[in-house]
């Protein structure tokens, strides 16, 4: 089941392609069409390096939310502005909303398109994230999808699935790992993985990092 809030809709607002994004799409589509490039193989190369793409600013946001209750309140009220406080702004970082994991609730975000993925905050989306099977399965059998990612949730925990769009982009605030009392934000940020911010993983525990 997916929860939806009232989305803003911009009916006359069309998509934009410009700068390098346009150039890359242009050449890539020509090369694929002519058979010089196999899109699957290309995705595979990108996937190998994807975790290193983008500043992963979201980890700093999550760490601050864990340590600073006033900041968490601002995130709840207006996530785009609160994320902007840390200097992270830009087209793909707009219309942000946080969803918080609790002992009772696990949040997971799905999305079908790269245009709605807030990469300045989260880093590059995983290639599978945009695939239709992932999206539909995340909605119909979220426990199974999570277990394939190696995540087992305690019995009885509710899973909420959120559908990200260009008008509403979600950032999951994972639960703070046990044993991190008194940690600085920089240390905490190391525990926040990309997958934990889209809900296909949990934040690392202190002994998972070295």
């Amino acid at each position: 089941m997916s929860d939806h809030d009232s989305h803003e809709h911009h009916d006359h607002d069309h998509s934009h392609l410009d700068g390098m994004e346009l150039k890359v799409r242009t050449l890539e589509s020509l090369l694929v069409e002519k058979g010089y490039v196999d899109p699957g193989a290309l995705d595979e190369i990108v996937e190998t390096y994807e975790t290193r793409v983008g500043p992963r600013n979201g980890a700093a946001v999550v760490a601050k939310a864990w340590n600073d209750p006033a900041y968490l309140d601002r995130l709840r009220e207006n996530a785009t502005a609160a994320i902007g406080e840390l200097g992270f702004t830009g087209r793909q970082g707009e219309h942000m909303r946080i969803v918080e994991n609790t002992p009772q609730i696990h949040n997971m975000v799905v999305c079908t398109l790269c245009s709605c993925y807030p990469w300045p905050v989260l880093g590059l989306p995983p290639v599978w994230y945009k695939s239709a099977p992932y999206r539909s399965r995340a909605v119909s059998e979220p426990e199974k999808v999570l277990s394939e990612f190696g995540v087992t949730l305690p019995e009885g925990k509710t899973i909420r699935v959120w559908d990200s769009t260009a008008e509403m982009r979600y950032l999951v605030i994972p639960e703070r790992p046990a044993g991190t009392e008194g940690w600085h934000e920089e240390q905490l940020a190391e525990l926040v993985t990309r997958d934990s911010m889209i809900g296909t993983g949990l934040a690392l525990s202190p002994d998972e990092t070295t």
Binding site: L31, G54, W119, L124
Partner: peptide, 28 residues
């Protein structure tokens, strides 16, 4: 790089990197 792994400032950079590597793999 960061810790030996390539870093990309924006998604298109990873795509550009992959295209060059792939065209080389295919013998272009």
């Amino acid at each position: 790089r960061d810790c030996g792994e390539p870093v990309f400032a924006e998604p298109w950079e990873a795509r550009a990197f992959a295209l060059a590597v792939h065209l080389n793999e295919r013998g272009v």
